[in-house]
Design a protein around this nucleic acid. Structure first.
Ligand SMILES: [Mn+2]
Ligand SMILES: [Mn+2]
Ligand SMILES: [Mn+2]
Ligand SMILES: [Mn+2]
Lengths: 223, 223
DNA sequence: GAACCGATTTTGATTAATCAAAATTAAATC
DNA sequence: GATTTAATTTTGATTAATCAAAATCGGTTC
């Protein structure tokens, strides 16, 4: 049986959820799963039991869910298709990085292996999508590097934006207009707990202040 | 309510079915619909009633079904997406004309208007897909020209292949290897009722004989 | 240890899409 | 006009995916 779009979305959500768990944690809670998929909690429970039944996940009642290696394999392929499609839409089709997520969310379920591999080739086997999210290999390996956020990186030190972990179009447009896209270099000048703000020095020494919540969505590496 | 993939497939099948009806006929029979969609006849009846209920089709029990103008509008858009995607996959992605139909069958349900119109632009507003099938306009107009087949065109007269009405991969590869693709010029030298065969003069005066069934799938225009 | 609370699971129901097989109808044949 | 046949419709059932609301659980609080 080939997995339905619904099953693929569940697997992808669990897969991504697992990578975001606090170290030591290994189970994605039902509530989180239901919330990212936009479904009722009871529905998540029912579906996850079915996933477990078909050998794609391990379900621990009241604790959460994780993928088996079979489930991981499938999830990685969906995520690969999603991220390759996003990059393709930006690089080849000339779409904006803030509008490709929704298209990819659908395309990830229907593009054939043939087409995906042709896209991968056309793009030169890229390692990351337009938002800096790593693209799993055809074999299902995902290279998740540990990265600082603008809340944890060193002060007064040039860093390169590596990844933006929010698909909201308005947020992405804000990032772009302030020259904070992946690849661009910036510096954190100050953090203030009380005002919940982070002050940055950007391109051309432009100064700007953003909230801590927003700052936590910008992942950076030493540059 | 936006139509499901299932509904889109029904609408497309009825729409294409209508264009293939003998002149005068206006209803697509349930049996034909069920057969092209690969479903049980009873399922077609049930679904068509639902389409009629939602104002997309007119259903006459025991006689068949036709689309309302609302249904036609939707069907034309699905067909437009299908045929544009096929051409895109061939021209931009370098896929073969015999392998794009299945991909397009899925993609037609998920590509956004944004993406379709970008593809249309990228291809220069093409009028036909790789098989010569006309592409409906964004406004839903379909330019179906009346064409001869190799069974009805004049003998000993150069004609240009305009359209191949069979998506079977093996058949399409045969057509291609014998230089009978849309755009290529040929001549019918003879038809024989008894042997059910048609003799052609192709490129470089190559002679070949094909069956009447196959000949009826090659549509041509005077050249 | 009892009471509470938030998260989770269960229950009962709905909708879309499908099938197999029985029943019916329309049209053709005798 | 009665009979046969092929197409169509009806019936009864199934599967996947979902929800709302009630019930339950596990882990704090008091
Ligand atoms: Mn999706
Ligand atoms: Mn992305
Ligand atoms: Mn389709
Ligand atoms: Mn075609």
């Amino acid at each position: 049986m080939l997995p339905s779009s619904t099953v693929e979305n569940y697997l992808k959500a669990i897969y991504v959820g697992e990578t975001q768990l606090a170290n030591g944690q290994k189970l994605v809670p039902m509530g989180q799963l239901a919330s990212v998929l936009g479904i009722a909690p009871g529905t998540a429970t029912t579906m996850v039991k079915a996933l477990a039944e078909s050998g794609l996940a391990v379900y621990e009642p009241y604790n959460g869910v994780r993928l088996t290696s079979a489930g991981e394999k499938l999830a990685a392929r969906v995520l690969r298709r999603h991220r390759l499609m996003e990059l393709f839409l930006v690089q080849v089709m000339g779409m904006r990085w803030d509008e490709v997520h929704d298209d990819a969310e659908q395309l990830e379920h229907v593009v054939s292996d043939r087409l995906v591999e042709r896209i991968d080739e056309m793009l030169g086997h890229p390692e990351a999508d337009p938002h800096g999210d790593p693209i799993p290999t055809a074999e299902g390996k995902l290279a998740e590097r540990p990265l600082d956020t603008l809340l944890t990186c060193p002060l007064h030190t040039p860093v390169t934006v590596a990844r933006v972990t929010d698909q909201d179009a308005a947020f992405l447009r804000f990032i772009e207009s302030h020259h904070l896209k992946p690849g661009q270099t910036i510096e954190v000048e100050a953090r203030d707990e009380v005002s919940d703000a982070v002050r940055l020095k950007g391109r051309d020494d432009a100064r700007m202040t953003i909230g801590a919540r927003a700052a936590s969505k910008l992942l950076v590496k030493a540059s």
